[in-house]
Amino acid sequence: MNDEQVIADLHGRWVFGWERNEGDPPFDFRRTFGELYDFSSPDVRLYDDFDPEQRVASTAAGYGAIWEPNFRRMVAAHHAVDDGPYVIADHDLAASTLTFVARITLPDVTTDIRTTTSLVWRRTPAGWRIVREHNSTKVLPEGHLDDLLPTHSG
């Protein structure tokens, strides 16, 4: 498998790492993504505009701290890749972009979204790791993904 295929596979694993089903154990960012993010690099910058505070994390652990409380509240989160991934890779750096849709179910509301995600990967002795992330999300009309994604863990 060449680097582009490896990165494409890793980006897909990243998307589905965010999956949640009713009854799952509490979301643990490091357990879920420990082999995808670079937890030791000083060069990390991670951003997702779906964060209401629109924080930029400078560590993978800090990024996890943004998302763990929200994902622990979720009843379910179901995803489907809508377009991509598109990958370019060089010796030590790679970039990947894809678009996914998701249905996020909280105890009191369900939200459908479409997100374009761009990740920059650095080759480390342990493998490719995320050092940059930028996600742009659009909230879709209620029920927009009814034919594609379940309302609950079904």
Score class of each variant (00 low, 15 high):
S58K: 12
G17P: 02
N70M: 14
P26I: 02
D49I: 01
P26D: 12
Y37G: 02
S40K: 10
H79C: 07
E35L: 08
R45A: 13
R103Q: 03
A65R: 14
D92C: 05
A89N: 02
A102T: 08
E22R: 07
R20I: 14
D90P: 01
S40A: 15
A60I: 12
D90N: 09
P42E: 13
R30S: 08
P25R: 00
D24G: 07
R72Y: 07
F50S: 13
A102I: 02
R103T: 06
A80L: 11
D48G: 11
Q54N: 13
E35Y: 05
E19I: 05
G62D: 02
R73G: 13
S41M: 06
T32S: 14
E53A: 15
A65Y: 06
A65I: 09
L93W: 03
T97E: 12
L98S: 05
R20L: 01
G23V: 00
A60M: 10
R73P: 06
I88Y: 01
P42T: 13
W67L: 08
F71A: 05
P69D: 02
V81H: 02
V75T: 15
N21I: 11
D28R: 09
E22V: 03
G17M: 05
R73T: 14
D51H: 00
Y37L: 08
W18S: 10
F39V: 06
F71R: 13
Y47L: 14
A80T: 12
A60C: 12
G34Y: 06
F71K: 11
V56H: 01
W18K: 04
T99Q: 08
N70K: 12
G23N: 08
G34L: 09
A61N: 11
W67G: 01
F39A: 04
P42V: 11
D38S: 06
E22T: 08
F50K: 04
D48C: 11
E35W: 03
R31A: 15
N70D: 11
A77C: 12
P26A: 15
L46A: 00
Q54P: 00
D24Y: 05
D51F: 03
S40N: 10
E22L: 03
E53G: 10
L36Y: 08
V75E: 12
